[in-house]
Simulated scan of single mutants.
Amino acid sequence: MTTRPRSRRDGPGRPLPPPDPAVLRRAHRLTSAVELGALLRAERALRALTQAEMADRLGMTRQMLVGLENGAEGVGIGTVLRLLADLGVTVLALPAGAMADLPEALGLDRKTE
């Protein structure tokens, strides 16, 4: 029996590596384009990149990046994912209701000594 290689469209994504609680404490729950823009701005600034440098790295105009950071809607999801990947940010999609159990499941609810 021959199996064909999986294409990118066969599955919903790659499995996650074991979580690092220190990293997960920096996780953000995004519910709007404005929150996404704030995250993009903060991550870019954390890496000491100007808007012009970041836009140039991604082949977009500075004005487009300014719009994203200000919460502009209507930008393609591929553009947003490419920008996040370049900043080293991974997007994690969870089913509705999973957020309530996530800290306990990942051991983040334990008090540090």
Rank of each mutant, 00 (worst) to 15 (best):
M1E: 13
G11P: 03
P12S: 03
G13D: 04
R14A: 04
L16I: 09
P17E: 02
P17S: 00
P18R: 01
D20R: 10
V23I: 12
L24G: 06
L24D: 01
L24E: 08
R25I: 04
S32C: 10
S32D: 08
S32I: 06
A33G: 04
L36Y: 03
A38D: 09
L39G: 00
L40N: 00
A42N: 13
A45D: 04
R47I: 07
L49E: 03
Q51L: 05
Q51S: 09
D56G: 02
R57M: 09
T61Q: 14
T61H: 15
R62Y: 03
R62Q: 11
Q63F: 03
M64C: 10
M64G: 07
M64D: 06
G67L: 00
L68G: 03
G71Q: 08
E73N: 10
G78C: 11
L83S: 00
D86K: 01
D86T: 11
D86I: 01
D86E: 15
V89T: 02
T90H: 04
A93R: 11
A93F: 13
A93G: 12
P95H: 15
L102C: 02
E104H: 15
E104T: 14
L106Y: 02
L106A: 15
L108G: 01
L108N: 02
D109Y: 05
R110I: 09
T112P: 02
E113F: 13
